[in-house]
Design a protein around this nucleic acid. Structure first.
Length: 317
DNA sequence: ACGCGTGCCTGTTGGC
DNA sequence: TGCCAACAGGCACGCG
């Protein structure tokens, strides 16, 4: 299921394939997939140029510009440095080529479309196919590029969504407005400060308005790495332990990005490759198996309504 | 107002 | 072997 590292990987693998092309058609095959106030047809009519891709939380962003020159688009994926705590917006094409930096999400006028936002939810995938490729069983949306190639948004469970972003949309889209800070762009202190309610610490990790981009996999894995039991009230943890949880989360997210994410079942990069981080799981999906660290049996129970696995010995209240 | 439970959706899995 | 219930998951929504 695509969480922050998986969406980041899709963004990185998608950009070299579609950067510098114009979107000339948007076909919505499943009505529920297209959301927001800008109709898909309105996007297609503008022949917008793909300026690059990015990510905000679990949202994949396809940045669009009206005009302006875009430098030569690399035919292969570039070697990109895995950044530290900042600058996770690496795929932005300009006249000079690739550069880092967060592109503007607001246009000059309220309805000027500056990006498409995709939420992959559990089964969403983005692939680029040659001209004339027919939709597949689970294809929900197709972007046609000016060279004829087609970007498929496939999504078996129809939970995924896409929409056009403009100033007005960003003002009325509650999910966007409430979205918390990026875990890779905040300090340990900021993070600790946001985990101050008495709700279960895992519930806060999963709450996108607290921290953006964490799902069930990276919540369980970071709690294990930090030695924190998932069900304890966040506010009962010392600041030192909450900061330690942030360091664990950052380390895991960056490692996973380096490994192109976790492929449990459906997730693939935009090149169709599987990730490798699933081979590094300590707890996720390992209910009843033995802890890699202490050898005892891992426990599992629902926490915050999600299936949760932890080590009763290594993780403490 | 906040936090929890439920529904959405469908492919896969496990039990009988 | 075949069938079907349970399950997976993020988020919107309704309720207390």
């Amino acid at each position: 299921m695509p969480e922050l590292p998986e969406v980041e990987t899709v963004a990185r693998t998608l950009a070299p394939q579609i950067g510098g092309r114009r979107i000339v058609a948007v076909e919505v095959l499943n009505a529920g997939t297209w959301q927001g106030l800008v109709p898909a047809a309105e996007v297609a009519g503008q022949r917008l140029l793909v300026a690059g891709t990015g990510r905000r939380g679990k949202l994949l962003l396809v940045h669009l510009v009206r005009e302006g020159e875009v430098g030569p688009v690399p035919q292969e994926e570039r070697e990109l440095p895995v950044p530290g705590n900042a600058g996770l917006w690496p795929l932005h094409y300009t006249a000079q080529g690739i550069r880092s930096g967060r592109p503007a999400l607001c246009g000059q006028t309220p309805r000027e479309v500056t990006a498409l936002a995709f939420h992959l939810r559990m089964t969403g995938r983005l692939f680029v196919y040659p001209e004339g490729t027919a939709p597949e069983k689970h294809t929900r949306l197709i972007l046609t590029l000016d060279d004829g190639r087609r970007v498929f948004f496939d999504d078996a469970r129809k939970f995924g969504q896409a929409r056009a972003l403009c100033a007005e949309e960003l003002n009325v889209w509650e999910f966007w407005r409430k979205l918390g800070p990026e875990p890779l762009e905040m300090t340990d202190e900021e993070f600790a400060g946001r985990l101050s309610s008495r709700r279960a610490v895992k519930a806060l990790l999963l709450d996108q308005s607290v921290v953006a981009g964490v799902g069930n996999i990276y919540a369980d894995e970071s709690l294990f790495r930090a030695g924190v039991r998932p069900d304890v009230p966040a506010a009962s943890l010392s600041e030192e332990r909450r900061m330690r949880l942030h360091r664990a989360l950052v380390d895991i997210l960056l490692t996973s990005i380096r490994e192109c994410g976790s492929s449990i079942r459906d997730y693939r990069t935009a090149k169709g490759d599987v990730g490798a981080f699933q081979n590094r799981f300590f707890v996720y999906g390992r209910s009843g198996e033995r802890c890699h660290v202490c050898g005892r049996k891992l426990a599992s129970a629902p926490v915050a309504g999600r299936s949760t696995v932890w080590c009763p010995h290594c993780q403490k209240a």
